[in-house]
Design a protein around this nucleic acid. Structure first.
Lengths: 198, 198
DNA sequence: CTAATATTCGACCCGTAGTTCGAATAATCG
DNA sequence: CGATTATTCGAACTACGGGTCGAATATTAG
């Protein structure tokens, strides 16, 4: 006959431990990649025995996915609101980029991983994994904003995917290039985009 | 007492077989990545026995490196001439991009691999591998052109690395997005850059 | 043709690393 | 306090895959 309060605490502790494992995993995955990361090392870094990891996760793959899902989901949650805000496409687009930059500052390692891993590790299996759905959703929203913005003359008259690519590279650079800068990018983003979006 | 003519033929055949192996390796590496690619599969795809691969290469790693070196080296060779042509930075920059687009059309799979692999597989070991040197050299030349171009007001007044990043994304998109287009990009490049470089 | 050399290859070897086991310890309940 | 359940963990298991071996075949030399 289990005690409810105790049960809650236990489940909280369980979640906290999962979080610790994910934190360690992030470190190792970032440095070594999915294949290069060894379970033993993740265990060592996160301070648990190897078998304990399997008490909280069913496989290395699941740890990896949980990490990405966690990241993309929370990112999506934050951006969703902005996306439906009803501003002009260009304004919305810029707001979203700003928000992303802001979030990046709250957990740099995580987002560096999020924006690096996808290309590298998008092989068949992952293709249909849950996190990929949120990544795609975000991608799609941004693409639609660009398309609408082009219609309205708010963006250059180019193939939308190209603008997307260019923005991607640019934004990635802006947010991740500076090693020291931790307070990024309010007007910087504006300025940069203004420069390139004409 | 070996026969000279025969020796030449042999070495040519040897090179040809290495080429075949690399071709097969490219297919598999592109699809599966460095870790995901199994030697057995490369052997099967390129039509040799597994052990034969080791008769021509000393390791999987070497096959991978040979592939990248081959690509980056030939790319560099072609671009070097243009780089020292003495045109204005912006004109030189554009010429180089044009040239790259042209080369991509001669061996799309190879260049898709070249431009995809680097980020994914730049972990310690590869860091100092030979191909990386050529990749860096090319990167450096392009960066310098951008820097000089900014001085002359031929590029937007932005952090050079950002322009580089944006150009990278943009160019990558332009060259690799269109599935069908095999004759790319002469004036297209001009137009696209004009659009974004102001 | 025969000897020597070059090439090919599947079967095997063996280290690595993901996963599981079983025992030991800690926490909770009645 | 036992008894039951939750948690931890290193040792052991096992599959996989890079790399090697030795025999077989083809090629060249003389």
């Amino acid at each position: 006959m289990p005690n409810t309060a105790t049960l809650n605490r236990k489940s909280a502790e369980r979640a906290a431990r999962q979080e610790l494992i994910l934190q360690g995993a992030l470190t190792v995955f970032k440095e070594k990649g999915l294949e290069g990361a060894k379970i033993d090392e993740i265990a060592r870094v996160s301070g648990f025995g190897k078998a304990t990891l399997y008490y909280y996760f069913t496989s290395k793959e699941e740890i990896f996915s949980a990490l990405l899902l966690h990241g993309w989901l929370s990112l999506w949650r934050e951006l969703e609101e902005i996306a439906v805000g009803g501003d002009s496409p260009r304004a919305t687009f810029i707001s979203m980029l700003k928000k992303i930059a802001e979030l990046v500052n709250t957990d740099r390692p995580l987002y560096e991983f999020l924006f690096q891993a996808p290309q590298s590790y998008t092989r068949e299996e992952n293709e249909r994994s849950e996190w990929k759905a949120y990544q795609n959703r975000l991608y799609k929203v941004l693409m639609e904003l660009i398309e609408q913005g082009i219609q309205l003359g708010e963006f250059p008259q180019m193939e939308p995917r190209l603008i997307m690519k260019a923005m991607g590279g640019l934004f990635h650079g802006l947010v991740f290039l500076g090693k020291d800068r931790d307070t990024i990018t309010e007007n910087e983003i504006e300025e940069m985009l203004g420069n390139l979006l004409g």
